[in-house]
């Protein structure tokens, strides 16, 4: 399944609405202003999968994953390189450490951040597309997750994969990570289509 440019734009729009909400939530949590942005989004074609998974494996050391299913199913991942993950968890969690080493406390903070972020992103998509989803608890996943993508049969499952750069801006700190959306059902296009018609979108925004 492929998405047209138009459809991608719409999707990006939807995601950013969710990202905006996540921003608010995180800001409240920490008491300091956190700005999030997802400036663009890319489709990863089947051919680019292997290359992409290798790249993700090498760069994203700490990731939070949340699965969802219902009207459409898939997985959402928010991933960071260790340094970025460390800085994010430290700044947001208010934990003073000088060593670049993730421990359980830091993992916990990362989990919550991931939870907030992904809930809002996927939730936003679901709302806009007028779909009902059920979610699994967020889980921390390691680099090995991306390795798993190479398993035979898996590519079939991922009918659509989207990748976006995310930017967390907290006071003077800029922390960049990656957002990956895996859609395992083929109906995203028609859902988008449904949402694209004027009446659908108006309806959604009002909500």
């Amino acid at each position: 399944m492929t998405l047209s440019e138009n459809e991608l734009d719409v999707l990006l729009e939807i995601i950013n609405i969710g990202v905006g909400r996540a921003s608010k939530s995180l800001s409240e949590m920490t008491g300091s202003r956190i700005e999030l942005s997802v400036p663009n989004i890319e489709v990863i074609g089947r051919n680019g999968f292997v290359e992409m998974s290798e790249k993700l494996e090498s760069t994203l050391d700490q990731s939070v994953l949340q699965s969802f299913q219902g009207d459409f199913s898939g997985r959402a991942v928010l991933g960071f390189p260790t340094r970025q993950a460390f800085d994010l968890a430290r700044i947001v969690g208010g934990i003073e450490v000088t060593d670049v080493e993730m421990d359980d406390e830091l993992f916990g903070v990362l989990e919550e951040i991931g939870n907030i972020f992904l809930n809002n992103v996927v939730g936003s998509i679901a709302n806009m597309l007028d779909c009902k989803l059920s979610y699994m608890l967020p889980e921390l996943c390691s680099q090995k997750f991306f390795k798993g993508l190479l398993k035979p049969g898996q590519p079939e499952k991922q009918s659509l994969a989207l990748i976006a750069d995310t930017s967390f801006s907290i006071s003077e700190n800029d922390i960049s990570g990656s957002l990956i959306l895996f859609f395992e059902t083929n109906n995203l296009k028609e859902l988008l289509f449904k949402a694209s018609n004027p009446s659908g979108i108006v309806h959604t925004i009002q909500k």
Binding site: S25, E28, G93, G94, V109, G123, N127, L133, M136, P138
Partner: peptide, 24 residues
Amino acid sequence: RSRRFLDRIQSVFENHQPCLFSPS
């Protein structure tokens, strides 16, 4: 009653999304 909690608890009911609060 703070926003941190209320909003998130609400989203559980609205979106059926699980909510995670890290220890702090």
